[in-house]
C-alpha cells in the first residue's frame, strides 16, 4: 500500500519536473511576431510556385530580423537544395536537426541530398555510431533527468521506510542511465565544433598559408571538425580523419561558436 503511494508520489514529482523543464525552456517562450508569421507564409507560397530564390530571400529575412526555428531552417535548407547550393542546404538541415532532433523530414532530405551529391559518410567505429544515435542535447537531457530522479529517490528515502527494494533498483537504473548518457554526451561534445564546407572547390592545405601544398580538394557540403585557428585559416579534420588547413570563409559552423573559436 505504502509502496503504491511512493510510486504515485514519484510519478507526480516527475510530471511536475517535466512540466517545469518544458515551461522553463527559453525556446518555448520565445515570441514570434505576426509579421514573421506572415512572411513565413509568403515564403511558403513562393516555394510552392517554384520560386525558390525568392522564398530563400524571405526566409533569410525572417532569420535576420526575428530569429529562427526548426521548421524555418528546414524550409530554408530546402530552398538552398533546390537552387543547387549544397553546402548551405546541408548546413541548414544540420541546424534544423539541432533544434528538432527527431524531425524525420530534415533527416530524410539531408540523407537524400548527401546521396545525390556523392557526399557519402565514412563508416564510423561502433562506439561513435552508438554515440551518434542521439545528439548532444538528447544525451545531456537523459543524464540530467537521471540525476533529478536519482535525487528525488534519495530524498524520498529519508521519509519513507517502505519500498526500499524499488528505490534501490530505480536508483541503480538512474545511475546506469546517467553513466551511459554522460559518455554519449562526452562523445557528442565535438558537435559543438562542427562546421560545414560552404565554399565551392575548397582545398585542405598542408599549412596555413596561401602557397601551401594541397592535401586534397574537399567537396562542398562536407562536415568538418574544427581543431584550431591561425590567421584566416582553420585547422580541421574531415570525417575520414584527415586533417589540414582550410580558409575560414570556406566553412560555416553549425552552432555559432564561442568568441575564441571565431
Amino acid at each position: 500500500m505504502k509502496s503504491n503511494r511512493y510510486l504515485a508520489l514519484l510519478s507526480a514529482v516527475c510530471a511536475a519536473l517535466i512540466l517545469f523543464c518544458s515551461s522553463a525552456c527559453p525556446c518555448a517562450v520565445a515570441a514570434s511576431g505576426q509579421s514573421a508569421e506572415t512572411l513565413f507564409q509568403q515564403g511558403n507560397e513562393l516555394y510552392g510556385q517554384g520560386k525558390f530564390q525568392e522564398a530563400l530571400q524571405i526566409y533569410s529575412r525572417i532569420i535576420a530580423e526575428d530569429g529562427f526555428s526548426g521548421p524555418l531552417l528546414y524550409n530554408l535548407a530546402n530552398c538552398y537544395a533546390q537552387t543547387g547550393r549544397t553546402g548551405q542546404a546541408i548546413l541548414n538541415y544540420e541546424r534544423a536537426l539541432r533544434l528538432s532532433p527527431g524531425d524525420s523530414d530534415s533527416k530524410g532530405n539531408l540523407d537524400l541530398l548527401r546521396k545525390s551529391r556523392g557526399l557519402f559518410q565514412e563508416e564510423l567505429p561502433l562506439f561513435r555510431r552508438l554515440a551518434s544515435s542521439l545528439d548532444l542535447d538528447q544525451w545531456t537531457l537523459a543524464a540530467g533527468l537521471s540525476l533529478v530522479i536519482f535525487t528525488l529517490i534519495n530524498l524520498a528515502g529519508l521519509r519513507l521506510s517502505n519500498g526500499r527494494q524499488i528505490r534501490r533498483w530505480t536508483g541503480g537504473l538512474c545511475l546506469l542511465v546517467m553513466a551511459i548518457a554522460s559518455a554519449g554526451a562526452f562523445c557528442q561534445y565535438r558537435q559543438l565544433a562542427e562546421a560545414v564546407v560552404t565554399g565551392n572547390d575548397s582545398r585542405l592545405l598542408l599549412s596555413p598559408f596561401p602557397a601551401a601544398s594541397s592535401i586534397e580538394t574537399i567537396q562542398e557540403g562536407r562536415k568538418l571538425h574544427y581543431l584550431s585557428k591561425h590567421g584566416s585559416y582553420a585547422l580541421v579534420e574531415d570525417e575520414a580523419g584527415r586533417s589540414g588547413w582550410i580558409e575560414t570563409n570556406a566553412i560555416t559552423f553549425i552552432i555559432e561558436p564561442a568568441d575564441h573559436l571565431r
Partner: peptide, 29 residues
C-alpha cells in the same frame, strides 16, 4: 523542378507549414 536552370533535387520532402517558436541562437542544453 520549375525554375529555369535550377539544379534542384527531386524527391525532397515538402516544406513545413508551421513556423514554430523563433529563437536568436542555438544554445546547447
Amino acid at each position: 523542378k520549375e525554375a529555369p536552370g535550377n539544379p534542384g533535387i527531386a524527391g525532397l520532402a515538402p516544406i513545413h507549414l508551421q513556423m514554430g517558436s523563433l529563437q536568436k541562437k542555438i544554445v546547447p542544453l
